[in-house]
């Protein structure tokens, strides 16, 4: 990417805006919404590893997300320190992801979707019904947020910056992953699984590893979620959460780096706006789902990107635009 390209400029401006956001937003309510967008974007990026790059649509990620939140919440409640709780949460989420993957990778396509849905429901059922462990519908409260590099995360801006750091790491790791040989292998199993096998790849193991990567970042985001709310209840593990994250991924455009981030912003903002005026978020969620799938299957980001490239090309018709080369598109 050249320093003069519009993409670089857009990236630089975005980073600058994100870094200074608490200063120009001011109101903690909006800073908190920004934090929400960022950690939901991490889940969406995580799910996109499976949906976009591996071609495996999971409807069980709310279970993994909640697994991290509950593990940390329950350990903190039992009096353990933040470090122990956080590490245990990530380990528990990775183990759960491994079990999810082993069972759901018996199948691909619709079968995979169905099994992840059922597995996600089991975790929801445990959180909801195993009241002696999880406190059931009343959920788990945690009293403190951890310190991060010696900074107390109690206030909105501090928490925002901690989330931004995690988000940044997630985006960078995804950007590296997409260009890496392993990323190419994952995409290969999406496009031609049989051929990949014949070329010497272990298709199952590639998908399994992709699931673990996805599970890892889902767990990290689950931790941010539980620290943000200082509370977790079975509600967050319901199918609806998995569907919302999936909506973030497909509305932004699957298999792109930016798509899930934009999708997360759209869904979180819409959810907050809709919920502020009417109680009909589920209705709106359903209508958007139906509308996007029926009328804009490619997602918002690829569609907008196409229009943008077209417009840019028009404006600078003498020099070829960098965004026009097909190979330049994030795949």
């Amino acid at each position: 990417m050249s320093l003069r390209s519009p993409r670089f400029a857009a990236l630089a401006i975005s980073i600058l805006l994100l870094l200074t956001l608490p200063a120009w937003v001011g109101n903690p309510y909006y800073i908190n919404i920004a934090s929400q967008i960022l950690f939901w974007a991490v889940v969406a990026l995580a799910l996109n590893v499976l949906v976009g790059y591996a071609g495996l649509v999971s409807l069980g990620h709310a279970g993994l997300f909640g697994m991290a939140g509950y593990t940390a919440g329950l350990l903190l409640q039992a009096g353990h320190g933040h470090l122990v709780a956080d590490i245990a949460a990530i380990v528990a989420t990775l183990l759960t992801s491994a079990i999810f993957a082993i069972l759901s990778l018996r199948s691909t396509g619709i079968g995979f979707l169905m099994i992840t849905l059922a597995l996600g429901q089991i975790l929801w059922g445990i959180a909801y019904r195993w009241a002696s462990l999880t406190n059931g519908d009343n959920g788990v409260n945690i009293t403190t947020r951890p310190e991060f590099l010696g900074i107390n995360l109690a206030n909105a801006s501090a928490f925002y910056y901690a989330t931004l750091v995690v988000f940044g790491l997630a985006v960078i790791s995804m950007a590296v992953f997409v260009r890496s040989p392993f990323g190419a292998s994952v995409r290969g199993t999406r496009d031609q699984a049989r051929r990949m096998n014949a070329l010497g790849y272990n298709v199952w193991l590639i998908r399994f590893m992709a699931f673990l990567i996805s599970g890892f970042w889902t767990g990290v985001a689950g931790l941010l979620f539980v620290y943000y709310n200082q509370f977790i209840s079975p509600q967050v593990m319901a199918l609806q959460t998995s569907a919302e994250v999936l909506l973030m991924v497909i509305s932004g455009g699957t298999g792109t780096l930016l798509g899930p981030v934009v999708g997360a912003a759209i869904v979180v903002i819409m959810k907050n706006v809709v919920s502020a005026y009417i109680e009909r978020w589920n209705l709106v969620l359903g209508v958007i789902f139906v509308a996007i799938i029926s009328f804009m299957p490619e997602g918002l980001v690829p569609g907008t990107a196409r229009l943008w490239r077209y417009g840019w090309h028009r404006l600078t018709s003498r020099k070829p635009s960098a965004g026009d080369k097909p190979g330049d598109r994030a795949q």
Binding site: L113, A243, N282, G286, F289, V290, I293, S294
Partner: peptide
């Protein structure tokens, strides 16, 4: 009116039924 338009595209069809399930759930609540 909806599933037929997506004939043969299994995944969008499934997601469409998921979207309708949210709509119906909220309408019932209303």
């Amino acid at each position: 009116f909806f599933l037929k338009r997506l004939s043969g595209q299994e995944l969008p069809q499934v997601l469409l039924t998921l979207g309708f399930s949210f709509i119906i759930a909220d309408l019932c609540l209303l």
